[in-house]
Structure formats: structure tokens, C-alpha cells
Simulated assay, not measured.
Amino acid sequence: MLHARVIPGPNIKWNPSYETYRARVESLSNMDILRPQKVPEGFPETVDAPWVWSTTDFEDDSKHIVSLNESEVVEVERALAFFKGLPGDLGPGDVSRATFPLLNLRSKLEGVAKNLHLGFGFNVIRGLAPQRYSSFENIIIYLGLTSYIAEKRGVQDSSGSMIIHVKDLGRQIAHSEMRQSPYARNAQPFHNDVCDILAMYVQEQAAEGGESYLASSAKIYNEIAATRPDVIHTLADPSWIFDKHRTPAYWNTRALLFNYTGKGPGFCFSRRPITGSPTSPRGPGVPPMTEIQAEALDMVHFTAAKHQISMRLHRGDIQLINNVAVFHARNGFQDRVSQKRHIIRLWLRNENLAWKTPEGLEKTWFEKYGDSERRKISVWNIEPGATRERVIFRSDSCS
């Protein structure tokens, strides 16, 4: 009986190596390769929009931090009490603007929504004290506040999870050294989730490390388009192979870069299904990427690193990111017994302001936000934790 083998491909890792990247750039530059001298038809030569920015644009934290004052926190707590006082056995899926009324705070939160979609693309809401509330109350507050920013919630995995608790479960799950990233403490390279708005509510920050890194997708596009328009062609080509980590081998293909109607280029990908990772090695029988694709993939990462901003989120912060306009990454971290990093993640969509989903992502977006089988079994996990299968098995991960 013949067994499938891992087909050799470029020397590229999930966590990028700058030395390997530069060597590949040099090697390919010496080859006689036909390189387009202009960006693909329909793509702009440059993006001129508020979501084009670099490191020096955010030296002042006050530009992106939206602080809740004492009276606004009181209003949030009154809305929580209103929700809890409604008749019936209401749960997280019942939270909406109608069941969590914020008459005064509404305009501030709607301003955040406009900035996420039409401005520089990210904010941090600061001022909550999650230790004052129960786990259930924190979830309700989180959903209540974000319902004024992007009310539709996406399903995050094949088990129907509407909430993911990002927390290192290494001590909780036996023999889980090779666990998936939401449940590990390793650093993560620049990527996008599979959503419109990514929300992260910090229940506790790491004892050490865990910094959040953001980078403007349009800034990355502009720099690559100006110097290497051929790479834009590579990124926008729909032949990229995404390993679905199944047996027998199964994969799908799509582009990494899309031209969003009225907004311009935006990315949507993470490296794991493309390169494989220590926890999800590339499957036997799955075709490898090309050397040209490997160059393009690492070029995006290192251009992002060049223009990144770094922020250390505090307990109670809610970080909100326009996922298609802004890349995100994470530094590795260390917990202590008395201080363990814990973040609650939501995938959100504002139907009125969302960037129009490109054709190449419509099927994926239906799975997350449409009347899909996954959404029909919606599960609201109030407490952190996950099954061993969810922590270990790569085919059940969320992106």
C-alpha cells in the first residue's frame, strides 16, 4: 500500500526567518523571470486613505485609546442590570442594542465603528474592570458594548464556538505540547483572522510579554506596489494552496490579496495553512507553494514588521481591529500562577459599514456570518477552556 508523503517545497517556516527571506530574494533576482512592471488591472498604484499609516503616526496613545469615564461605566452597569432583569432565560445570543440600552454612550461607540471602517482601522476601549463582574456578566457587557460597533457575530470554528478564550492551556491539557496558537504562549507572525472586525477583551494581561503588534495593510501594499509590482500579482493570484489538514489530503485555493470595492486592496490570510507550523505541519500529498510565492509571503511579513506599532494591552481593554485593513501579530508571553493571560475573542461584522466581501471570500464569509450549519449550532462558552480535540487537532482550528 502506498502512503502519501510530504511533497518538498521552499525552505519557509510559519515563524519567518529574515536571513532565509533575503537569500531567496537575492537568488530569485538572479534568475531570468518575467516580472510584471505594473500592478494588476483594477488595482491602484497607491492607496491614499486614512488606513494608510506607519509606526510614527501612533507615538501618542491617545489617538487610538477611547476611555470610558465613570458615568459611562455606570451606564454600562445599568444596561447589564436591565438585561439581567428581562423576563425569560436570556443568554449571550440575546444581547443586542434593544436588550442592552446605552443611550448616552451610543454615539461614542458608533464613532469607534466609523473609525474602524473609514478611519485608521483600530481602537482600544479602556476603562472596564473585569474583576468586578462574573464571567457571565463580562460576556454580556462585552457583547453589549460591541453591539453598537458591529452587532453581527461570526462563528469561529467547526464546533460552533461564538466565543474563543485565548489562554495558554498547557497546564490544563495533558500532553499538549503541540497545541494550537489560541491555547499556547508562543509568538505569532502577522496574519488576519477570518472576520470583518476582530475584538479582543482582556480579562488578564500576561505577567511578561504578550505585546500586540499591528500594521497597516494599505501601507504594506503601497510599499510593495511601488518597488515590486510583480509581487502584487503573486499575492492577488488565486492559486495559493490552503491546507485543510485532513486525511486524505484536502486543500482549497484562493488569493491572499483582494481589491475591495470602494476601499482598495486588503489582505486575508494566516500563514499556518500555507506554510504549515510546528503544531500543524503541512500534510502529506498537499502541493507546496512556489519559491516566488514564498518570497511574496515573507515580503508581506517583513514589510509589516517595518511599519508596525506595538501596544501592551491592560486588563479591561477591548481591542478592536478592522481585520482586512490591519494585520496583527503577538509577542510570546509568560504567565505566573497569580497572573495568567486571558483574552476573550469575538469575530464581528457591521452590515452597514463593512467593506464589501470580495467574490473570493464569499463562501468563507457565509460560513462565518450566514445561515451556515456551523452557526446553527452556536455555542457560547462562558468559561475558558476547550476540548483536547480543539486544542490539539489542526483540522478543528478557527482560520
Rank of each mutant, 00 (worst) to 15 (best):
I274M: 14
H307G: 10
H314N: 13
R246A: 12
D317L: 13
M311H: 12
G262D: 06
S338T: 09
H307D: 14
S338I: 00
I232V: 05
K244Y: 08
E351N: 11
W251T: 01
H307Y: 15
H314G: 04
P278K: 10
P248A: 12
K263I: 12
P281T: 03
F302T: 10
I309D: 11
R272C: 11
Q334T: 07
A249F: 05
R312S: 12
P265Y: 08
E295S: 13
R312N: 09
A305I: 08
G332T: 01
F327Q: 10
H342M: 01
G264N: 01
E291H: 15
F258M: 11
R330F: 12
Q293E: 07
W251P: 02
G283M: 09
T290C: 11
A325I: 03
K340R: 14
I321R: 07
N252D: 13
N252Q: 12
T261L: 11
Y260W: 07
V324Q: 13
L353S: 15
I344M: 10
R272H: 08
G316A: 04
Q293A: 00
L348Q: 15
N350E: 07
H307R: 14
A305N: 14
L353E: 15
T261I: 08
S280E: 14
A249E: 13
I343K: 01
R246K: 15
P281W: 03
L313H: 03
I344S: 03
T290I: 15
S239P: 01
N322L: 06
I318K: 09
I318S: 04
R349F: 05
R336T: 07
F302L: 12
D298L: 04
A329K: 08
